[in-house]
Design a protein around this nucleic acid. Sequence first.
DNA 1: GGATATAAGTCAATATGACTGACGTAAAGA
DNA 2: TCTTTACGTCAGTCATATTGACTTATATCC
Lengths: 165, 165
Amino acid sequence: MTDVKIGPNPLFLREEDLRQGMELLFYAYRDFTAEPDAMLAKIGLGRAHHRVVYFVGRYPEITVSDLLGILQITKQSLSRVLSELIGQDYVVQRTGTRDRRQRLLSLTDKGMDLERQLSDAQRARIARAYRAAGAQAVEGFRTVMLGIMDEAERGKFPGGAGKRG
Amino acid sequence: MTDVKIGPNPLFLREEDLRQGMELLFYAYRDFTAEPDAMLAKIGLGRAHHRVVYFVGRYPEITVSDLLGILQITKQSLSRVLSELIGQDYVVQRTGTRDRRQRLLSLTDKGMDLERQLSDAQRARIARAYRAAGAQAVEGFRTVMLGIMDEAERGKFPGGAGKRG
DNA sequence: GGATATAAGTCAATATGACTGACGTAAAGA
DNA sequence: TCTTTACGTCAGTCATATTGACTTATATCC
């Protein structure tokens, strides 16, 4: 952690600020995933199952290739996880009607239960953090997180500061 | 109630905000780790090596047990990674003077080089996001991230909203 | 001084999640 | 018809993590 000789810095971005940003991500993500990981371990599943269940719940009737695009893993990696989830009745496949090559994935009731259980701890964590931070801080959080991720992904997060509901 | 558009489940709006928060974390972390992972793969190392090199660089002369506390993995898991890093001359061990049971870990020059290379991509990513978002958004980001992580970790991030520079 | 606790290392077995490469099948589309 | 796409599968490998049992050296408590 060195090298701060990049000339005048308009935002006073120091090495220390950047390092802190990196660590915020590390610790927040580590603690964010710890609870569901522990729950999953009890039923013999792993984090990969959570991700699949989460995104299938989020986008019912998602195709396998769209899911691969989100997870950015290979189909062989997804295959084992997905077939376990289907075999244990958390996820169902349905042949697409418009395109019969597609396998549209959805959660069963059992899958929805699991998803809710797993995500509840995370939702509560986010809710607590949002509540404590306030609306303006949440908007800043959103802006920075969008800036951190690849530009290509930002379209997934429409809307802005708009107060709704 | 007919579906007007494709997309996520029509959920209660508060629920949607929380989901979005979860996904911001998922995508930002995924993209944040992708670049160093690719570099590491080229030299036969993995993300675990990066984490060790990062935190040893951050806290020179850190003890093994303190490092284990940060990474929250078992000593057996750390063992392989650490002995590879020591064997390849990225990290050195020194017996503690105050407590001779301890092995104090530090980076070699080669280790510092590696750490810098790996983290540069991440630093650039954070810097870009911070610069684009502005100081107020960064403060909000900080506040929310601290709220997401376990309370026990927050002491590692002193300073708060203090204006510097 | 002796008992106990702590810091670290090691051996063995195992699970999980990821990868590459090769190949197959069904269906869509040019 | 030919090619491409969507999906699946077999086989092998790697990286990261786990639990459990055990050892060595050193520190600390009584």
